[in-house]
């Protein structure tokens, strides 16, 4: 019962957040400005994808990847390492959290709403699926690498706060930012590939190509794997 109430509160909070974000977005358009030449309906698709990504983060990433920090601090990582399956795999898929489900749902609804306003067909949405999957992989890799850092710095949750702040930036299409910001969001922290690239594919705009996104995702995968290996070489618990 306690949890049901909490879930309701989480759903309301997510809804409030969504309404507020859409309101923030509308302020640009109501005051005669636009976001890097994107139309209101197109910006809504970006917003929906960002909300979806947030739901994905709190459903799949935070409960698992976020827990690595806890494993390290409490020394339970040793037990995980002793298990006869791949540790990265186990750490990544152990838990699910229901708190993110409302956001996943709202995100899909907003994307569909924005798409319908633009008169998009089902095939248009289908074009966004592959870039979206790539975006999810990129997001996972970034999260995993950050959490791996907890092997060295136990208090890494500040870093995830930084990451969250930057992901918030993904709520708006990247071309809406000044040039310097765009460089950061494309090459340093690839926020662009999480929301703007899939949205561009859905609404039929030009943006960074899918091959660039695919390459990035591949590189990040290898990098996060190598980084994890490196961390494991350095890891030694109190008793080992």
């Amino acid at each position: 019962m306690e949890y049901r109430l909490n879930f309701l509160l989480a759903a309301i909070t997510s809804l409030g957040n969504l309404v507020g974000s859409l309101f923030a977005l509308s302020l640009f358009y109501n005051n005669g400005m636009d976001l890097g030449g994107w139309r209101w309906e197109e910006a809504i698709v970006v917003m929906g994808l960002a909300v979806f990504m947030e739901g994905f983060t709190s459903t799949f990433l935070r409960p698992n990847v976020g827990r690595i920090v806890q494993h390290v601090r409490e020394g339970t990582l040793d037990f995980v390492l002793l298990k006869p399956i791949d540790t990265q795999f186990w750490l990544s898929l152990r838990n699910l959290s229901l708190w993110g489900v409302p956001n996943l749902l709202y995100g899909v609804l907003v994307v569909i709403y924005g798409g319908r306003c633009l008169g998009l067909a089902l095939s248009d949405f289908a074009r966004g699926v592959i870039p979206l999957l790539i975006g999810l992989v990129v997001l996972y890799c970034i999260w995993f690498m950050l959490s791996t850092m907890s092997i060295w710095f136990v208090k890494v949750h500040n870093l995830t706060g930084l990451l969250r702040g930057l992901l918030e930036a993904g709520r708006y299409p990247t071309p809406a930012y000044p040039a310097a910001y765009q460089i950061v969001f494309t090459f340093v922290i690839p926020v662009t590939f999480l929301t703007t690239v899939p949205a561009a594919a859905i609404v039929g705009r030009n943006s960074a190509s899918i091959w660039a996104a695919l390459t990035l995702a591949g590189v990040l995968c290898l990098l996060s794997r190598a980084f994890w290996r490196l961390a494991m070489r350095f890891y030694s618990s109190a008793s080992s």
Partner: peptide, 13 residues
């Protein structure tokens, strides 16, 4: 982040 958005948006309009 918001500063960047508003600066660019108000620059054009």
């Amino acid at each position: 982040v918001l500063m960047g958005l508003w600066m660019k948006a108000s620059h054009n309009a």
